[in-house]
Amino acid sequence: MTAPTINGSRYPQPIEDLLPAARKLAKELDALPSRNRLMREFHIGAPKADELLSRLRDEADRQARADALHLHMVKRGSIAERVELFPTEPATDPADPPAAPEPAPPAVDPVEITPVDRVAEVNTAGHPDTPTATAPPRRAVVWPVVLLALPAFVAIWSGWVGLGGLTGFGVVHPLPGIWDSFSINSAITLPIGVETYGAYALYVWLSGRVPDRARRFAKWSAIASLLVGALGQVAYHLLEAAGVTSAPWWITTAVACLPVAVLGMGAALAHLVRTHD
Score class of each variant (00 low, 15 high):
Ala218Thr: 10
Pro106Tyr: 12
Pro174Gly: 01
Ala104Asn: 09
Trp157Val: 08
Gly162Gln: 05
Pro101Ala: 11
Val154Ser: 04
Ala224Val: 15
Ala104Asp: 11
Pro103Gln: 14
Ile113Phe: 05
Gly159Asp: 10
Val108Ala: 11
Ala149Tyr: 05
Ser186Ala: 12
Lys219Arg: 14
Thr167Gln: 02
Arg209Asn: 02
Gly165Glu: 06
Ser225Arg: 14
Thr134Ser: 03
Gly198Cys: 11
Phe169Trp: 14
Ala152Arg: 03
Asn185Tyr: 04
Pro105Thr: 05
Ala99Ser: 11
Arg213Gly: 05
Ala120Phe: 02
Val194Thr: 13
Ala107His: 04
Val146Gln: 04
Arg139His: 09
Leu190Pro: 11
Ala140Gln: 05
Ile223Gln: 14
Arg213Cys: 02
Pro151Arg: 00
Ser186His: 09
Asn123Cys: 04
Thr132Ala: 07
Thr132Asn: 04
Ala214Gly: 14
Thr130Phe: 08
Val122His: 04
Ala155Val: 10
Leu150Gln: 05
Gly170Leu: 12
Ile156Gln: 02
Gly164Val: 08
Gly165Arg: 14
Pro101Trp: 15
Asn185Met: 03
Ala100Pro: 11
Gly208Gln: 02
Ala218Trp: 11
Leu147Gly: 06
Pro211Tyr: 01
Tyr197Trp: 12
Pro110Gln: 02
Leu175His: 11
Val172Leu: 07
Gly193Leu: 07
Gly164His: 13
Val194Asp: 08
Leu163Glu: 05
Lys219Gln: 10
Phe169Ala: 03
Glu121His: 00
Thr134Asp: 00
Leu231Val: 10
Thr92Pro: 12
Lys219Gly: 04
Pro144Cys: 04
Pro106Lys: 14
Glu112His: 09
Leu150Thr: 08
Leu190Cys: 07
Leu226Ile: 12
Ser183Phe: 13
Leu175Gln: 10
Trp220Lys: 15
Pro137Met: 02
Gly198Phe: 10
Thr124Phe: 03
Ile184His: 12
Asp96Asn: 03
Val210Asp: 03
Pro128Val: 00
Val194Met: 14
Ile188Lys: 00
Asp129Val: 08
Ala199Tyr: 06
Ile156Ser: 07
Tyr197Phe: 15
Trp160Phe: 15
Ala91Thr: 02
Ala149Ser: 13
Ala214Met: 02
Pro105Asp: 08
Val146Lys: 03
Leu166Ala: 05
Pro136Asp: 07
Thr189Arg: 02
Thr134Val: 12
Ile178Gly: 14
Ser221Met: 14
Asp180Val: 10
Asn185Pro: 13
Phe153Asn: 07
Pro176Lys: 01
Val210Ala: 08
Trp160Val: 01
Ser186Tyr: 08
Phe182Pro: 04
Ser183Asn: 13
Gly168Val: 09
Val122Cys: 01
Pro128Lys: 03
Ala230Pro: 00
Thr130Leu: 13
